[in-house]
């Protein structure tokens, strides 16, 4: 018996979210009194074993197959199914990312068993096959759900950014064992065929400063002062759905439940009311400064700091003050 964490990696490079899932899995395995195993898919991920051991994996199962040289939801899902058939884990965990959720859903669908996405807490049953009590996030994080799920092997993903990845002081003794899953040739139909790489640089999710604009900005041109302020602070511009929906900015700039989760040192939210679906994308910001004409706006009452006023006057005034102090 074991607990198996499916390691998310991209052609051999392990994702940070996987380390969170391992940390989560490690304490769950301790609670269950079972070993923590990890599964890496594709020979290009063999090197990950050392990192996995540092996070507590005492055995790494390495799936090797010609069809596993790059990511594919179906080949990966079927590989998890093959691993489960031989290892018989009590639980299969992965991270609650696009890939993690997709792979476990593919595997669970093939076995016709439940898959609980985005868990925050998990209480295993006393007896195998009994009820697992899970707490999971809904509505992008603004609502929580207690659910029970019963299964010989449960499939769970761990909410991204809800656990702090903690390596052990030293790697545990770790064995590796490779296997070749029996994969139907047709499954490569969904394997990544090509890639278009993006220029490296700060993105919305990693920028230390985000200046966000909402409906209150009024027009695409209205974003110029926000762009200027972001530039002065070494940050980038984000926006609300009201803005993307009006075609003022690209969806890649959208903060929120169906956009990007941001976690900057400061989020300057201008003319954004702070609807719950926007808030869940912004709430991980270390500090929030709201600029709004309405002192009752949700963004204002939830923010750390606020300026009550017209953003079209306040934002240029802030930039001017910065330039004055820097003599630029």
């Amino acid at each position: 018996m074991m607990l198996l964490v499916v390691a998310e990696h991209d052609r051999g490079s392990l994702s940070g979210a996987t380390l969170e899932a391992l940390t989560f899995g490690r304490s769950l395995a301790e609670k269950l009194g079972v070993p923590l195993g990890a599964l890496t898919i594709g020979a290009n991920a063999d090197e990950c074993a050392a990192d996995l051991a540092l996070y507590g994996a005492s055995v790494v199962h390495q799936a090797h197959h010609d069809a596993l040289n790059d990511y594919g939801p179906e080949t990966w899902g079927a590989t998890v199914v093959a691993a489960v058939a031989t290892l018989d884990p009590v639980a299969v965990l992965s991270c609650g990312t696009d890939r993690g959720n997709e792979v476990l859903a593919q595997a669970a669908a093939r076995l016709d068993v439940p898959m609980v996405a985005n868990c925050l807490e998990v209480e295993p049953p006393v007896v195998r096959g009994g009820d697992w009590k899970v707490t999971r996030v809904r509505w992008g994080g603004s609502l929580l759900e207690h659910a029970v799920v019963s299964c010989e092997t449960v499939f769970l993903t761990v909410t991204f950014h809800a656990t702090v990845a903690e390596p052990l002081g030293a790697a545990v003794a770790c064995t590796t064992s490779s296997f070749t899953p029996d994969l139907d040739a047709s499954l490569t139909r969904t394997t990544v065929a090509e890639r278009v790489t993006r220029e490296a640089g700060v993105t919305l999710s990693t920028s230390p400063v985000v200046v966000g604009g909402g409906r209150g900005v009024g027009s695409p041109e209205g974003f110029a002062p926000l762009t200027e302020l972001a530039g002065l602070l070494g940050g980038i511009v984000g926006c609300s759905r009201a803005v993307t929906n009006s075609g003022w900015r690209n969806h890649t700039d959208q903060v929120g439940q169906t956009g990007t989760r941001i976690a900057p040192d400061i989020y300057i939210a201008c003319g954004i009311s702070g609807a719950i679906q926007h808030w869940v994308g912004a709430m991980a910001s270390k500090k929030i400064l709201a600029i709004n004409t309405d002192p009752e706006a949700n963004m204002v009452t939830r923010a750390d700091y606020a300026v009550i006023g017209d953003l079209h006057q306040v934002v240029p005034a802030i930039s001017a003050e910065i330039r004055r102090r820097t003599g630029a």
Partner: peptide
């Protein structure tokens, strides 16, 4: 929420 001020006059407090 700490209100830093009203209108453009708040710019100093923001900076």
């Amino acid at each position: 929420t700490v209100i830093l001020g009203k209108g453009p006059e708040a710019a100093g407090a923001v900076v």
